[in-house]
Each structure stands twice: as C-alpha cells, then as structure tokens.
C-alpha cells in the first residue's frame, strides 16, 4: 500500500504547470487534493511517471461571484466551498451537496476541481454541475477552452479534458428568478459512496413550474439529466401527486446495474423515492424564496 516510484514536480504558477503538463502529457497526473488519486496510487491502480502538484497555485484557489455565475477555482477545497457564503447564497444546490462528499477530514483536502476531473459516477459535484448546466475552463499550451457540463462527463472516471489540459476553474450558473433546489442521496453509512442520488432545479412562476431539471447520479457511467421527467413537470404545481408521478417516471427512465451493494431493482426504487422527495423539497424551496 505504497505509491509506485514516481517523480514529483511542484509548479508555482498556472503557466508553469501547463508547460510541465505539455512536456509530460504521456505519463503525468495532476495532483490536487489527492483524496482520490492518492488511494489509486497507494493501491497501485495508477502508475503515472510524474505527479504535477498544483496545490501551490494561487490563481486557482479563489471563489469569485460574477454576473449570474460563481467561478470556483480548481483547487478550492470542498470544505472551504462548504463554508463559503457566496456558494451558499448563489449556488445553493452545490452547498446542499457538499456535506455529502466523503468526511470532514477528506473535505479539508479534496478539491472541487478534483471531484470534476475524477468523474466518479457517484460523485456529487459532477451531478450538481450537470443539473445546473455548469461549465469548465481548461488550459493547455495551445490555449484555453470552455467545456459544457453535458460534454464533460463521458463515462466512468472519464472526461473530455485532454491529457495535456489543466482544469482552471468551474463556472456555476446562479440565475435570477424564483428557483428552488434540492439534492438527495442515499448511502448505507454517512460519507460512503451513494447507492442513488438525485438533484433538481425548479423555476416557479404564477404558481406552476416554468422550468424543471431532474438529474440522477450513481446509476450510470456519468450523471444523467432525465429530460422526460423535467418536461412532464413544466406547467404544473409540484404537489404530492405530481412528485410521486415524476418519481415513477424517473424510476422507469433509469437502467442501473446490480452489484455487491444493491440490486438494480432496489436502485431503481431508490431513484423514484429520491426524485419524489427532492421535487417536494425544491418546490418548498421556491416558496421560501418568495416569502
């Protein structure tokens, strides 16, 4: 349970990090909080030739509120995002999800950017990003580009970020209007990987849902927006009947697999219950905003 032989580089600036990454793209791994990468090294699942430690970069360590967005630097710690007033006020769905990531001690070190690039299908941050339609800014020696959340998460632990690209920040929409948000996940013990997770965002106008997004995690290789469930909710007030119906639709829309931890049938049932619960909470959240 020790990391393999590896070189270690510790750039102080983004420009330096990008140059190193360009030079070593073949065998390099970027080391941020290390709460996923270090276990992979200790267990010898990963054999990079060089680690590029980005913990000393100052340019990626800030949370910046903007015009209907919040920009979160790649190396912002999950625990610091959880303590951020900006995140709580402007991206409440992310604030709801953060305490579910790992544990107090691992959130002290784990980063928002790390959760994105690791792309665990059971990751909270990717699910919230897809639900809100966030974006990622990546940089390489050939320049900077922006990737929409929908195009970012390809499959289990796989993103569309190239080997020579460094994640700089993630951009989280904070739209005006009466929005309500809810995040729900179920795991057997607090901090364990979720068996099912649901996030939803509702915009309310004239007593009905004008926009609705329901997304699920931990039931496929990447988080999935359930378009048909969202579409069925538009134009309706979200009461218990509507939420229960949406839960049935959501359960029917997913196709999880069975494993050691839970059967496919159980996971599908869980998606239904979590969807129903999340929708009622998100609707109540729009009412709170109105008051």
């Amino acid at each position: 349970m020790k990391p393999p032989v590896v070189d270690y580089l510790c750039p102080e600036t983004v420009a330096e990090a990008v140059d190193l990454l360009g030079e070593h793209a073949d065998g390099a791994k970027v080391l941020a909080g290390g709460q996923s990468l270090m276990p992979l090294l200790n267990m010898r699942f990963a054999y990079p030739t060089v680690l590029i430690d980005i913990n000393r970069l100052e340019e990626t360590a800030a949370i910046e509120p903007g015009d209907e967005v919040v920009v979160i630097g790649a190396t912002v710690r999950q625990g610091d995002a959880d303590q951020s007033r900006t995140v709580h006020a402007m991206v409440p769905l992310l604030a709801q999800a953060l305490p579910h990531i790992g544990h107090f001690v691992t959130r002290n070190r784990g980063t928002i950017g790390g959760s994105v690039v690791h792309a665990d299908p059971r990751g909270e941050v990717p699910l919230v990003m897809v639900t809100l339609g966030g974006r990622a800014t990546v940089v390489s020696t050939s320049g900077t580009r922006t990737i929409e959340a929908d195009d970012l998460f390809l499959s289990h632990y796989t993103t569309s970020i190239a080997d020579d690209e460094l994640l700089l920040d993630t951009i989280w929409p904070a739209p005006g209007g009466l929005w309500g948000y809810a995040f729900r996940e179920f795991s057997q013990r607090h901090g364990d990987y979720a068996l099912g997770m649901v996030a939803c965002a509702l915009r309310r106008e004239d007593g009905v849902a004008k926009q609705a997004t329901v997304a699920v995690g931990a039931v496929a290789g990447h988080p999935v927006v359930l378009d048909e469930v969202g579409a069925a909710l538009v134009g309706e007030p979200i009461d218990e009947r509507a939420a229960a119906e949406a839960g049935r639709l959501a359960a029917a829309a997913v196709d999880p697999s069975s494993d050691l931890h839970a059967s496919a049938r159980y996971r599908r049932h869980l998606v239904g219950l979590l969807t129903e619960s999340a929708l009622l909470a998100a609707w109540a959240d729009t009412e709170r905003e109105e008051a």
Partner: peptide, 24 residues
C-alpha cells in the same frame, strides 16, 4: 488502511486535519 478510509493517520497540516496517508 492506507487509502483514506479508516482515519487513524489523521494529523494537522497548517491548521487543517488531513489524512497523512493521502499526502506526500
């Protein structure tokens, strides 16, 4: 456990508790 699960190796680095098995 040496992979961040058990918490035994927790120490404080610059005023934050961390898993020392997950840092170099």
């Amino acid at each position: 456990c040496e992979h961040g699960v058990c918490g035994s190796c927790t120490v404080i680095v610059d005023d934050r508790s961390v898993r020392s098995c997950l840092m170099l």
